[in-house]
Amino acid sequence: MLELKGKLQGKVLIVEDDETTGPWLVKRLAKTGLDAVLANNKEDALKEFESNIFHAVVTDVYLDRDQNKHAGLDIIKAIGPTGTPLVIMTSAADLEIAREGINFGAAYLLEKPFEVEKLIEVLEKLWTEPRGLGAILDRFLDLNSLTNKEKEIVRLMMKGLSNREIANVSKNTEKTIKYHFTTIFEKCGVGSRTELFNSVFPT
Results as ranks from 00 to 15, higher is better:
101 G>I: 01
69 K>T: 07
73 L>V: 04
101 G>E: 06
24 W>E: 03
137 L>W: 07
51 S>N: 15
85 P>A: 08
93 A>E: 08
49 F>R: 01
77 K>V: 02
21 T>D: 15
46 L>N: 10
111 E>P: 00
101 G>Q: 07
25 L>A: 11
100 E>G: 06
152 E>V: 12
147 T>I: 02
86 L>H: 02
123 L>G: 07
112 K>P: 07
63 L>H: 05
131 R>P: 00
104 F>V: 04
45 A>P: 08
121 E>N: 09
151 K>G: 00
114 F>H: 09
130 P>F: 11
54 F>N: 07
118 K>L: 14
161 L>T: 08
37 V>L: 11
70 H>G: 04
26 V>T: 11
48 E>Y: 15
153 I>C: 15
38 L>R: 00
70 H>I: 14
128 T>A: 08
102 I>E: 00
54 F>S: 10
77 K>S: 03
113 P>I: 05
72 G>Q: 03
85 P>L: 06
133 L>E: 12
62 Y>G: 07
29 L>Y: 11
146 L>P: 06
150 E>V: 05
32 T>F: 05
57 V>F: 03
33 G>F: 04
106 A>P: 06
24 W>Y: 11
108 Y>W: 12
76 I>A: 00
147 T>L: 02
133 L>K: 15
90 T>H: 09
137 L>P: 06
37 V>A: 14
135 A>E: 13
22 G>E: 10
100 E>D: 15
153 I>D: 11
147 T>E: 02
84 T>P: 07
119 L>K: 10
39 A>S: 14
96 E>H: 14
120 I>T: 12
119 L>H: 01
115 E>H: 15
146 L>T: 02
40 N>K: 15
124 E>R: 15
142 D>E: 15
108 Y>S: 12
82 T>M: 02
70 H>R: 11
101 G>W: 03
151 K>V: 09
